[in-house]
């Protein structure tokens, strides 16, 4: 806590709110990573930190440096773009690899374990078209 420059009130409060929201969302995602039971549930939790958590911290950094250096500092957009593009790719590849490994051992989750879609409730033959 040494080098914080003095900011106007609105910028300081906005930075504080954004940084707190981002860190809290990241922590909630990490707690979900510990508490969920199966891998297919767990893969959803850290994406909360990867999207809104990192986004909040990046926005706070942009606001803080733009106000304290009195010029627009937007190079944080680089990280935001990169994380937004790469997180779905990595999660998709990881889930595909997990599904492949589970199927090779015959332990893949059955589709019937999922709760029924609204269309399935209306039409039992899974076409989604009403029969009447």
């Amino acid at each position: 806590m040494i080098a914080i420059k003095t900011l106007p009130d609105w910028a300081a409060l906005l930075t504080a709110f954004l940084v707190l929201a981002g860190a809290a969302l990241t922590m909630i995602g990490a707690i979900g990573l510990v508490r969920f039971r199966s891998f297919y549930e767990r893969v959803h939790a850290p994406t909360l930190g990867a999207t809104l958590g990192i986004g909040g911290v990046l926005l706070a950094s942009m606001v803080y440096f733009s106000v304290s250096e009195t010029r627009p500092v937007v190079h944080e957009i680089l990280i935001a773009l990169f994380v937004t593009v790469t997180t779905p790719v990595t999660m998709l590849m990881l889930t595909q690899a997990t599904l492949y490994r589970d199927r090779a051992e015959g332990k893949a989750p059955k589709i019937t374990d999922a709760p029924p879609l609204p269309a399935d409730v209306i039409t039992p033959d899974r076409t989604g078209v009403r029969q009447d």
Binding site: I4, T6, A12, L13, A16, L20, A23, V57
Partner: peptide, 12 residues
């Protein structure tokens, strides 16, 4: 407001 910012950075 700077006190709030300092403490919220520590909490984060």
């Amino acid at each position: 407001s700077m006190t709030i910012l300092t403490w919220s950075l520590m909490a984060a």
